[in-house]
Design a binder for these strands. Structure first.
Lengths: 142, 142
DNA sequence: ATATACTTGACTATTTTAGTCAGGTTTATA
DNA sequence: TATAAACCTGACTAAAATAGTCAAGTATAT
């Protein structure tokens, strides 16, 4: 069970973006340099974030990206959703025949996976981008 | 972010095992048939479970497996640990150079992933095999 | 004009997953 | 003691997912 780096990068890049957001648009080039993420990969990720209206692009020289909503309103769940990072524990939903239909034991673990999925999703729904930045500020080193 | 089927199968198979455990050893063949998991794959999984002393094998005709501890004492975390299903969110721990060392923004998400990891692990540490079976009994259909 | 920066889609090497396969060993029971 | 049921182990592999790269643009501030 692991997070893919696409999801991790998305959160990381947005956190970076959120810190500079008030001043100017942030270029992907800068994020790429600061966070060590390939520019091409960032473009893929931001394309998705833009489609889901999490960020807004500003073209041309001195262009870049800004947040489209306030950091407080961007939950981690929105970010993961945008880049197709899904929390997926059960498989039996799609396979209708081999699934847990009628089988007691399978249904029993099915409940467990659902519960786990909710548990994780709750975590993501509670946390906003702002929470991340706040936390960081508290811990900032000089 | 997803669970691998090795982890899912391990839990499923143990739940199956736990229900028949009091009477006789349960053969992998039976579990394989009941749960639709390949026998060869089950053997791989049970080999690991045995090494971690979660189950005990009984050889020979009419042999099979029994739980080595009480269902109450087997937590999901033990099971996942046995089959190498790890909850892994952060990557920066092993890469010492590209990691979050000195970088504020990385450290900030690092905290997040740690928090998430704990959140999930807590869930696994709370649930025991017994919880699963109990739940099932409550929902048993006639 | 032109450099900077976004935009898109196709492509690919690597890794992980989810098993299979082959060839054992052990032991209850007839 | 023969034998079949059941465990045991390690090597192998096809398929899928991941983590990007590459190429060829378009838009716009200066």
């Amino acid at each position: 069970m692991k997070l893919t780096s696409k999801g991790r990068y998305a959160v990381l890049a947005l956190a970076d973006l959120a810190r500079f957001d008030n001043i100017n648009p942030v270029s992907l080039r800068d994020i790429s340099l600061r966070q060590g993420i390939s520019l091409d990969y960032l473009e893929q990720i931001f394309s998705k974030l833009r489609k889901k209206e999490i960020v807004q692009s500003i073209r041309g020289t001195q262009g870049g990206y800004i947040l489209k909503k306030r950091a407080k309103e961007i939950k981690l769940t929105n970010i993961f959703d945008a880049v197709d990072e899904k929390v997926k524990t059960v498989q039996c939903k799609k396979e209708s025949k081999k699934g847990c239909n009628g089988k007691l034991t399978k249904c029993l673990t099915h409940n467990l996976w659902d519960e786990l999925e909710n548990h994780i999703n709750n975590f993501f729904e509670e946390k906003s981008l702002e929470d991340l930045i706040k936390k960081d500020t508290n811990e900032r080193r000089i």
